[in-house]
Design a protein around this nucleic acid. Structure first.
Lengths: 203, 203, 203, 203
DNA sequence: AATGAATGAGAGTTCATTCAT
DNA sequence: AATGAATGAACTCTCATTCAT
């Protein structure tokens, strides 16, 4: 009994090691630069072992994406108890930025990388992605109901807001802020978000 | 003398042929789909010939990026004669969107792709990139001077604006608008930009 | 005692299951398409279990060959009660053709495949092979004794006859009758055998 | 000029080396046992070099088959000037046997091996195969016209004859004559063919 | 008795790159 | 100046087999 549990735990640990290694390499080397062999090398197992845990490269990437969306949703969930909608919306922007900067590899996989092999979004991650998206649109709608954003449609505005924060973090993640020094970059992101938030309040 | 010149000219012609072929294939097949062999095949030279004109694949990609930035700058230049700064700013957003949607592979290479092979930005393209960026910041500054954006700093605001339009187009290019149908997606981009522009005017 | 017997019985039962599964897959997918893992999957045991009962893939294939020869011998046995030797000989040809067409994978393994993994013919199947062969030579000898095949030696003639029927079926099995349409092929085999039989009667 | 010729010759020589090595291994190890790597190893070139001369494994095998059929047709051609049809027919049997025993690897590829990857018979070899086949059927028809084989149809009889000689050689090539010693086997083949020829004359 | 876990070896194929000519 | 020839390294994935438990 204890043995079975230990084995199960060890198995899951190895699976996690694979996912972690894969994610690391994914980030360092990009989608095309991530090979089964490299993953195997990093965890010091043989390539064939990977296939004991994942059907193929696709499945591995899918699982990584599952994880990413799951974590993403956790970040988003932290703002749900803010009752004032505009405050909640601004908080959403902050956790979005936070998630992206703290998990750039995940963010890339989720929103940037051209999925190399038809990664079919599966139920779970797709669902979590949609639910996260719904949190945004619902919050925007709540703002409208509360008198903000006169004359704006929630769907369009949501997309516009998403674009802005996505733009911010993806310029950072894709290393397109080289004209600013490292420190300035981080600061600039915050300030730009603040600036955008102010615009929102006036909109 | 005439001979040397002719030779020099021929050499440059071949180099141009290579660049053209490379660009074509790049636009057709993307960065990963572009191989030296394919380029050589298209111009009916041997792969080795490519290396007489370019140190390696990186250098070739750099030249493609030069072209991309050059074209990008052309798009940008079309708005320079708009004297009213806010009109110019909004026009900039439109041409940015236009460039990205009309040249998505270029856009990817310029602003999205984690440079697959350590592309070292060279003088020229960097310069054009910077000049384009300067057009934006200068326009924002002109707006501030004209009384818009009270309390905003031009650099931060410029970055915020860039982020928004970059966010819009990169979500499209990276195929992250799947929840909207194709037609809706294009329309949504326009509307979101309009919506953002309205916000700017009120900011 | 009863326990030991039960265990022995169970062991044999599992061995049979393996053989059955292996044979099934072999018949479905051919020699190259039969992998240890597939066999294990089908009986819902682990691959390692196969190795508790069979030294290696060779040994398993040998057992399949045993089965094949055993079935082959059953087909042959059906003609033993035909007393008239020439009739018996012709009947032999027919059951040979029948066996081959009804069990092409078995036939391949027995008579065609360059034993993919150095199958050492074991006692039993070898014995049944030899006994089948003896039935043929004995029948030919009976024909000679009955006045047929004047001037022929039974061993040489037997081999010649075997060659003909083997040639017929192996051209079919190895898919070398493509110049004839599918239906024609089956018909041609029958007619060619008939034609050969007539020749035999006149020989 | 001389240089170009020499290069061309060397290129062809390497191509021949590849084909020869491939054919050798093909025979030793069977279709599935023949890998690009093994071929490369044998000729002491890298695997990639193979692909400079052949698009893929298929093409390589096709070329080998071309050669085989071409040689086969040469053997067949030697009997064309025998005017007496029955003599020609018997001679055909002998050259068929001769070809198969002298080139068992080719014979396997042509008539025995289950083509591993959809080898599409190309024009040339297919044509030569058909022409060889036509020589047989025409000869049988000539025999019929000369008064032999009363009551037989040339197509059926041709197939029957082909089957016999194919059966003879394939039992030998597939190593199914183990019950006879090596020397006896060769002798038995000849005698069986003689025996069959006698039957034909009486048919 | 049974197996989960692991692997080395190997498959076909493509690529950027080099170098003697 | 141009290239034909060549290659090492890489890729994903499958297989028969072993062994500690």
């Amino acid at each position: 009994m204890g043995i079975a549990e230990r084995k199960e735990r060890e198995k899951q640990e190895l699976k996690d090691k694979i996912i972690n290694a894969a994610t690391e390499i994914f980030l360092e080397a990009g989608a095309d630069g991530t090979s089964i062999r490299m993953i195997a090398d990093r965890i010091e197992y043989s390539p064939a072992t990977i296939y004991l845990h994942f059907k193929d490269k696709n499945e591995l990437f899918n699982v990584i994406m599952d994880r990413a969306f799951s974590l993403f949703f956790q970040y988003f969930s932290t703002v749900l108890d803010i009752s004032e909608p505009m405050e909640r919306l601004k908080a959403l922007g902050h956790v979005y930025l936070k998630f992206a900067l703290e998990n750039p590899e995940f963010y890339s996989l989720m929103f940037i990388i051209k999925e190399p092999m038809a990664i079919h979004r599966k139920e779970e991650n797709w669902d979590l992605g949609k639910r996260s998206h719904d949190i945004l649109t619902q919050t925007v709608q709540d703002c409208i109901n509360a008198g903000y954003f006169k004359g704006h449609q929630s769907e369009i505005l949501s997309f516009s807001i998403w674009s802005t924060v996505h733009g911010l973090v993806s310029l950072k993640i894709c290393d397109r802020m080289v004209m600013y020094s490292q420190i300035e970059a981080e600061e600039l992101l915050s300030k730009a978000l603040e600036s955008f938030n102010e615009m929102l309040e006036r909109a």
